[in-house]
Amino acid sequence: MKSPKPLSDQDIAKAFDGDRLRQARQLALRTKQSLADPLGVSPAAIGQYESGATPPRAELIPLLAHELDVPREFFAAGRPLARLETDDAFFRSLRSTTAKQRAKAVSYTEQLWELVHVIEKHVRLPAVNLPGFVSGENKPDVFPRDPIAAARALRKAWGLGTDPIPHLVRTIENQGIVTVLVPLVEEEVARIDAFSTMSLSRPIIVLSPDRANDVYRHRFTAAHELGHLVLHGDRPGGDPALEREADRFAAEFLTPGLIVQNLLPRRVDFRKLNQLSEQWGVSIKSLIYRCREVGLLSDATARRAYIRLNQLTEQGVVATQSVYQFVGEVPSLLRRAVELAEAHDVTIRSLAQELAWKPSQVRRMLGDADERPTLKLL
């Protein structure tokens, strides 16, 4: 099969998609002013290109592609495009993120949906098993509004009982929820450690280990985002009260209160807390909070326990463990789907061609941010 004839700059200008420019600019954390300057146009002109009021001149297409590090063909209309608003996503670190950072995260999620859409042309992914979710819409009143009751309901729906969940992220992916772990390492987005959305054809959770490469924090964050999907699919993001509800959901989903309250020590016992931490896959800090929550510790005793925990952590007695040491907590759904597709002659390069991306962008989306070869000593 012959490759399609490359589009000329004139062709791309005629079929220019302003949303593509907006998406690429936000992903690159570029303002309209910073993009306009090297092109020799005004910020208002960039706004007109993005709104579709006027297309850029053909000679500007290669310059736009160079500045935003995308192929020229990326700007041509004709490919499926997801359109998200900032309010469509829930951000784990809402108060510490700027509008520009959230816009980058939203554009990233749009592109993630595009990658999933293309992969599903070649591989059948697990069906979404999230009661009430149908093609980007969440039916109201399927789950209780109370976070604790909702966590118990989801455990029941997924057949998890009341036991510890050994591989949380794998469990989430097996229910058809797209989950990715992407290090957002740029200084401007370092504080965005998770976000999620129910507004596309599949629920999506994006996690990053960069702020705290700690598997227990990672698991709690994944459960927190799952709480948003279950509780808040019909509500806009941005409300701190929703973040607190998602925290309560996560605590109950990971450590069912009716079970764990009988296991918690009646006094501060770090040896026992560490055993429970390893058994249930949650941090000692969260277990101390649970002790206070069920009345086993007073507020003053809990504060002293937190102080002592910080000291033990600084001394290296309590050590964090990397997410990458736990295979079941590293997302693998999309990577394994691509590996399966490769067995049928679908390559990273051919997927990139369908998307009009660079192959390196596909690899980044799959979590392969570092493309250097690995040195192995025999």
Results as ranks from 00 to 15, higher is better:
252 E>T: 00
283 S>Q: 09
258 L>P: 03
296 L>H: 08
280 W>E: 07
245 E>T: 00
229 L>C: 06
265 P>K: 01
316 G>L: 11
240 P>V: 07
291 C>N: 06
241 A>V: 10
291 C>F: 02
235 R>L: 15
253 F>I: 02
273 L>M: 03
239 D>H: 10
302 A>Q: 08
233 G>Y: 10
313 T>N: 13
287 L>P: 04
294 V>W: 08
278 E>D: 05
233 G>L: 10
254 L>M: 14
318 V>T: 06
285 K>G: 14
228 H>I: 07
306 Y>R: 12
226 L>R: 02
259 I>S: 12
291 C>M: 15
266 R>F: 01
245 E>D: 13
285 K>S: 15
316 G>N: 11
275 Q>C: 00
292 R>I: 00
244 R>A: 05
280 W>A: 05
315 Q>D: 14
229 L>S: 06
279 Q>K: 13
296 L>R: 09
261 Q>F: 02
268 V>N: 02
311 Q>M: 11
267 R>I: 00
313 T>M: 15
251 A>L: 07
293 E>V: 00
316 G>E: 12
315 Q>L: 14
275 Q>G: 03
240 P>H: 13
298 S>G: 15
276 L>K: 08
244 R>Q: 06
280 W>S: 07
291 C>A: 05
227 G>D: 12
252 E>P: 01
257 G>P: 01
270 F>K: 00
270 F>M: 00
254 L>N: 09
269 D>Y: 00
283 S>F: 10
287 L>E: 08
241 A>G: 08
284 I>H: 13
235 R>C: 09
240 P>Y: 11
258 L>E: 14
296 L>M: 10
247 D>C: 05
287 L>T: 07
316 G>W: 13
308 R>F: 12
265 P>N: 02
232 H>D: 12
308 R>T: 11
296 L>Q: 09
